[in-house]
């Protein structure tokens, strides 16, 4: 039997998976096992699938994903800590036909930027907000975040998060779902192939909502930080399923356009 050479296999018709053209050829700085890489990939794929590369402006936060702008081949603005929704508000208002999204972690969005995210969502800015919640400050070395679970050990809660000392973990996505400006609020994860597919669908839906000017779409991605949590990636995923999903259950919290499309249209009319 003739030898099969690699060049005979690498052919257009044999391609089953391809890196998105939006992803730049750079080595990511994220730790192996981190959820940011997959989430970045999904955003890139949606932008590519929709053919909106030259119409999209991303706003990156302060935190691990500050360098998101190094990985996706679109225009980017790097915002001050927590202010991405304010920055995105202005971009979208001044360029209403462009696609604008924010990408923030839990410290950036739910702590220092709590005011900006709530007000941008409440105004119903036509933007997409992607919220990566790994319950810890990764970049600064694993300190307590607003979303850190009770009892969870971090650099600033070395004996575990204590309610009396540190207060409760903040379910900010539940708060945001109550705001009339949001049209789609969902909580997803990227720990399995099925979850990745669901998150991609959610991101796609969010960008389509923006195209159709339906209001703010908000996607929380419950994520791991194996470096910050000080476990290996496999254990981090298991810990997330066992603990994070209980406090932060996955699924759509609000889909105004799907659940009650007629009511939603009526609501928007009345509001205006």
């Amino acid at each position: 039997m003739a030898e099969i050479e690699l060049k005979d296999i690498i052919k257009e018709e044999n391609i089953v998976y391809k890196k998105s053209n939006i992803i730049l050829d750079r080595t990511m700085h994220y730790c192996p096992g981190c959820s940011h890489g997959v989430t970045h990939k999904l955003v890139a794929e949606v932008i590519e699938d929709m053919g909106i590369q030259d119409q999209t402006i991303g706003v990156s936060p302060v935190g691990c994903s500050v360098f998101a702008y190094n990985y996706l081949d679109i225009d980017w603005q790097e915002a001050a800590h927590g202010r991405a929704p304010a920055v995105a508000t202005a971009i979208k208002r001044l360029l209403p036909d462009k696609y604008v999204f924010t990408y923030q972690g839990d410290g950036d969005l739910a702590s220092i930027g709590a005011a900006e995210i709530l007000h941008a969502c409440n105004r119903g800015e036509h933007i997409v907000c992607i919220f990566v919640n790994n319950a810890i400050y990764g970049m600064t070395g694993g300190q307590m975040a607003p979303t850190t679970l009770v009892g969870m050990k971090t650099a600033t809660t070395p004996y575990g998060r204590d309610i009396d000392r540190n207060g409760y973990p903040l379910k900010i996505t539940e708060l945001i779902a109550q705001l009339p400006g949001t049209c789609y609020v969902t909580r997803q994860s990227v720990d399995t192939a099925a979850a990745v597919r669901k998150t991609k669908k959610a991101i796609r839906k969010a960008f389509e909502n923006q195209r159709d000017k339906k209001g703010t779409s908000f996607i929380e991605v419950v994520s791991t930080c194996n470096s910050g949590w000080k476990v290996d990636p496999v254990k981090a995923n298991q810990w997330m399923r066992d603990h994070m999903f209980k406090f932060y259950p996955l699924g759509d919290m609000k889909d105004a356009t799907r659940d009650n499309p007629a009511d939603y249209e009526q609501y928007i009319k009345e509001e205006k």
Partner: peptide
């Protein structure tokens, strides 16, 4: 705080 960051977003465009 928000208004100056909105200015940042607009200026960057």
């Amino acid at each position: 705080v928000a208004s100056i960051n909105m200015v940042y977003g607009g200026a960057a465009c």
